[in-house]
Computed example of a mutant assay.
Amino acid sequence: MNYSDFAIDPAMIISKELSKTDVVGNIILPKAQVRSVLTKMKDVTDSRLQSGIEVQVQDLVENDVYTVTLRCIDNAKYSFGAGWNAMKYSLDLKEDQVLKLYWDHLNTKFILLNLPYSLIMD
């Protein structure tokens, strides 16, 4: 699929400046942005999110796919759990970097946007 042929819906982007906690442990994702993305996810319920659901994150530049667990903690915080460590180390993510993910609802996966937008938006 060529993502340069599609307009990216800003409501489907999760963007987070990584804190020390995010790079040492599991990442806590912005609640409002995750809830916006959840509107386009199929078969996602509160109880499934408490247990955790596996989602894929694709890096188009390196052609890698990561599987991470999206979970709701305490009915208020969303995080990536299992799989996050492998992803953050592989991508060499550091504190103060901004992680940007786009929910591709047609292919039911996140697309990593941590690359120049000109590669996917011209």
Rank of each mutant, 00 (worst) to 15 (best):
Q33I: 10
Q33H: 06
V34E: 06
V34Y: 08
S36D: 04
V37L: 00
V37G: 00
L38N: 08
T39N: 09
K40S: 13
K40T: 12
M41S: 12
V44D: 10
V44W: 14
V44A: 13
T45Y: 12
T45S: 15
D46R: 14
D46P: 07
R48C: 02
Q50I: 02
S51E: 09
S51G: 06
G52C: 01
G52F: 05
I53K: 15
E54G: 10
E54P: 11
E54R: 14
V55H: 03
V55R: 10
V55F: 14
Q58C: 06
Q58G: 02
Q58W: 11
Q58E: 05
D59I: 12
D59K: 04
V61C: 06
V61A: 02
E62T: 02
E62N: 13
E62F: 02
N63C: 15
N63P: 14
D64S: 04
D64T: 02
V65Y: 01
V65G: 00
V65D: 02
Y66V: 02
T67S: 12
V68R: 10
V68L: 13
T69M: 14
L70G: 03
R71Y: 00
R71M: 01
C72M: 15
D74V: 10
K77A: 08
K77T: 12
F80L: 11
F80G: 08
F80A: 09
G81T: 13
A82Q: 10
A82D: 08
G83I: 07
G83V: 10
W84T: 02
W84P: 00
W84Y: 12
W84L: 04
W84D: 03
N85W: 11
A86Y: 01
A86H: 00
M87W: 14
M87S: 07
Y89M: 09
Y89N: 05
S90E: 05
S90W: 02
S90D: 04
S90N: 05
L91I: 07
L91Q: 05
D92F: 08
K94P: 12
E95K: 15
E95G: 08
E95V: 12
E95C: 08
E95H: 14
D96C: 05
V98T: 09
V98S: 09
V98R: 05
L99I: 01
Y102L: 01
W103Y: 08
D104W: 11
H105L: 00
H105K: 01
H105Y: 11
H105I: 03
L106K: 04
L106Q: 10
L106E: 07
L106T: 04
L106M: 07
L106I: 08
N107F: 15
T108G: 03
T108V: 07
K109H: 15
K109T: 01
K109I: 14
F110I: 00
F110P: 01
F110K: 00
F110A: 04
